[in-house]
């Protein structure tokens, strides 16, 4: 009898591996091996044109060029990192909050046309990102819909701007209103730190980047809403009933019961959001190619640009791996902040 069980277990194990093998093989061919290659190339001067075997080993030179050496490569890398960070700081909180809000709304038992709302909120997420980006390009034109709506809403006070060509940083604009400019600002504005001046660091996202941020938020909310919705429906009604008996009103119920119970989901959503925003590429590729004035240059786009425009595949690989390490560290930090119980 015992032998039969052991035999059964052994066969189960084999079956499990066999079932896993297709996914594992694909995973190895398309992910593990390329990642190892990228790691190798990041230590070479491969130009991406000649056969990879001709690339010569240059040690840490690529990493030095983007992290330590003064020059355009380092300046570009930190500019891209700055842009991407502003992108993430803007998109992730808004995206998470809006997705949660929408999920709570469409989860209401009394809401009519529930499936209509669920579908329409989810729709942007399943539409081709390239198609949406192209449509937004039109919306963001100087005489485009967004400018028309804004000037209509402000009774003509809004000056139409060509969104995707505007390289002014949002924080720079606000500082400008307060009368602070680079020309008559304090001298430390001009101090260089990692290839960029302090004034550049505090630019905030440019108007063009903000345009992509709005688009990105809009397209990703749907997926996150669905995940929140699933989690919301997982919360047993008995908990709410108990709260109701204790006399809890809507807001305390949400704050003290719904939110804590959503914590693991929240961790998941924020992680997804962080990774997604730090890797943003397609919308930049379609809408701005990194311009105007490199204010929409993101790290992921810079990888592509170096690999296929500048013939510096090795450098591109080094940037890609640096991006991986940055995302890894951020996720770790975020795990700490969101709390350990979330990781259970």
């Amino acid at each position: 009898m015992a032998a039969g069980i052991r035999e059964q277990e052994r066969q189960d194990r084999i079956a499990a591996w066999l079932f896993l093998s297709p996914a594992l093989i694909i995973f190895a061919i398309f992910l593990v091996i390329p990642i190892l290659f990228a790691l190798y190339f990041s230590f070479t001067d491969w130009n991406g044109i000649s056969p990879p075997a001709e690339a010569s080993w240059i040690g840490l030179d690529n990493y030095q060029a983007i992290l330590l050496q003064d020059g355009i490569r380092r300046a570009d890398f930190f500019k891209a990192l700055k842009n991407t960070t502003y992108f993430a700081l803007g998109v992730v909180p808004v995206q998470t909050a809006l997705a949660l809000f929408l999920a709570v709304v469409v989860n209401q038992r009394l809401l009519r046309f529930k499936s209509f709302f669920r579908t329409s909120y989810y729709f942007p997420s399943i539409t081709s990102s390239v198609a949406i980006s192209l449509i937004f390009l039109f919306l963001y034109q100087k005489s485009g819909l967004i400018n028309s709506i804004l000037s209509g809403a402000t009774l003509g006070l809004w000056e139409p701007i060509a969104w995707m060509e505007d390289s002014r940083g949002l924080i720079h604009i606000i500082l400008g209103w307060l009368g602070v400019t680079l020309r008559d600002g304090p001298a430390f504005f001009r101090t260089e730190l990692l290839g960029l001046t302090i004034w550049d660091w505090i630019s905030g996202p440019s108007v063009a980047l903000s345009g992509i941020m709005i688009l990105n938020t809009w397209t990703t909310i749907g997926t996150m809403m669905i995940i929140f919705l699933a989690a919301l429906q997982d919360i047993p009604t008995s908990v709410y009933e108990a709260a109701q008996i204790d006399g809890a009103t809507t807001w305390p119920t949400f704050r003290k019961i719904t939110l804590p119970l959503l914590r693991p989901t929240m961790f998941f959503i924020i992680t997804l959001g962080l990774i997604g925003t730090y890797q943003v590429f397609d919308q930049v590729y379609v809408m701005s190619s990194g311009g105007p004035a490199k204010t929409t240059l993101t790290v992921a786009y810079m990888v592509y640009r170096n690999g296929f425009r500048n013939s510096e595949m090795g450098l591109g690989a080094a940037i890609a791996l640096s991006l991986f390490i940055i995302i890894f560290i951020l996720t770790m930090i975020q795990r700490r902040i969101t709390g350990s119980e979330a990781t259970d």
Binding site: A293, N310, S311
Partner: peptide
């Protein structure tokens, strides 16, 4: 020369900013 894309990018960005007066 090889790698002149960086110069092209810098000049294009510069022209853009010069147009907008920044």
């Amino acid at each position: 020369r090889p790698g002149f894309q960086d110069v092209l990018d810098t000049m294009n960005d510069g022209l853009q900013q010069a147009f907008s007066g920044t």
